[in-house]
Simulated assay, not measured.
Amino acid sequence: MSRNKVGKPKIAFLLPQLIKAAPIIYNKNLVAHLQDEFDITVFYFQGDDKVGFTCKTQWIDYQKEFSFEGFDLVQSFGYRPDVYLARNRKRIKAQLVSTLHSFIFFDLRSQYGYLASLVFGTWWLYCLMKFDQIVCLTQVMKDYYGSFLPKQKLNVIHSSHVVIQQTEATDSKIGDEIANFKSNKVLLGIIANLTYQKGIDHVIKAIADSEQYKLLIIGDGRYRKTLEKMVADYGCESKCLFLGHLEDAHQFMPLLDIYVMSSYQEGFGLVGLEAAHYKIPIVCNDIPVFREIFMNGIVEFYQANSAESLLRALDDVSGNMIDYGIKLHEFCTPKYRIDKMSNEYSKLYTTIIE
């Protein structure tokens, strides 16, 4: 075991890039809570450290080999880090751990199509076979990957919320735009990378003829034009507002009345924990992952193939939004604490290293 001057095991985190996005803030929070026990360095392929990691950070070239000499364990997150470590596995003596945030084939198919998902998904799984341990965010995800990977390598560690502490005032122009758009209606919100997987299409269809609800969509992606065309085809331009990508989008969460977790498939749903942090009530598409994270009475579930089901869930919540928001906050705050998540990672790392 490698030790630094104060006797801590040395761990490397390998990230694809350093940007203000939920998965990166997830790692920032995790690192901060593990530093008392481990000497951590964050390595990355792109960007610069504007996120504010509390440990050493170092850029490495994706095209060149790097042995991580002197480290006991390397923790990776995402396709490129996983592929990079697998490609250089023979030169790396450290133990390898990957954390998976999505269902590989579904996620890749949603973004790049069936053929690409088959090719790159199969390659990704082959790379993961070279890892010592793999972390899944839910039991549902672990069961899914148990069909492809050795079950003894799979672990479940639930995420924690990744709300960024706000250092500047909310952009007043955007805030005013949202307020003017909302008018006297119930404002629904979705913050996401705009892909088919996020299920935003069925929300647009459901509210197209409703006089009660408006939908705010924050995020960008390849599917945005399709969604905008859908809004035009349904003639509901006055009911849907696309704001594109906004840094620190969570700061606008308090302006929402209800958050809609509409995904057809999801690795965990971190933004739902952000909504809980702000006491914003949630309606969820009824998928196994969301059933594992939440429970009836805390959120309302609906069937994505039924506009009536979604509108019924929205009506139930909109009639009692304050109570739903409080119950959600009280349920999620103790259950998904950062210290609980970091303790689980600490146990896993210690077991592997020793």
Rank of each mutant, 00 (worst) to 15 (best):
Y264I: 12
D315P: 04
I19V: 14
L125K: 15
S147T: 12
Y264T: 03
H33N: 14
D286N: 14
C240R: 03
G319A: 12
D233V: 02
L85K: 01
D248L: 07
K50D: 01
L18G: 13
G297M: 10
Q17Y: 12
I104C: 05
P16R: 07
F252E: 03
A86P: 04
S309V: 03
D82E: 13
L100C: 04
Y79T: 11
T122K: 15
S102K: 01
Q95A: 12
S160F: 07
N27G: 06
A307W: 01
H202V: 00
F301C: 02
E344G: 01
K173W: 00
Q17W: 02
V283P: 11
E274F: 00
K130V: 05
F331T: 08
P288T: 06
V186F: 01
E177T: 12
R87Q: 11
V186Y: 06
K229S: 14
H245Y: 15
T351D: 14
I157F: 05
P23E: 05
I25W: 07
Q165M: 01
G325L: 03
P81V: 04
Y44N: 08
E228M: 12
S110N: 08
I164H: 07
K335E: 14
Q17S: 14
H245D: 04
S238W: 03
G269D: 07
S346V: 02
E292T: 09
K185P: 09
S262I: 13
Y264D: 09
Y213W: 00
F43G: 13
D220L: 01
D248T: 02
H101N: 08
K28W: 01
K5A: 07
N155H: 15
Q46K: 13
S102T: 15
V271D: 00
Q265G: 11
K173T: 12
F66N: 11
D220A: 11
M230I: 11
S346M: 08
F77E: 13
S262V: 14
D61C: 10
L73C: 15
I40L: 12
P288S: 04
S210Y: 05
M321C: 09
R87G: 01
L118N: 10
I190P: 11
K279E: 13
Y223L: 02
R80L: 10
Y324Q: 02
F181M: 03
Q75K: 09
D72R: 08
F268V: 12
R91H: 12
L149V: 13
G121V: 07
A275I: 09
I293W: 02
Y234G: 08
H161A: 02
V135H: 04
F106M: 10
F68S: 13
I104Q: 01
P334A: 10
F68W: 14
E344M: 07
D48W: 09
V135S: 09
V74G: 08
S117P: 15
L246S: 00
H161S: 10
P9H: 05
P254A: 10
N29A: 06
N184P: 02
W124Q: 15
Q197D: 06
A12W: 06
E211H: 00
T41A: 09
L270Q: 06
F268D: 10
V271C: 01
C55L: 10
F331Q: 10
G175F: 02
K64Q: 14
P81A: 00
E65F: 03
Y144R: 14
I258R: 05
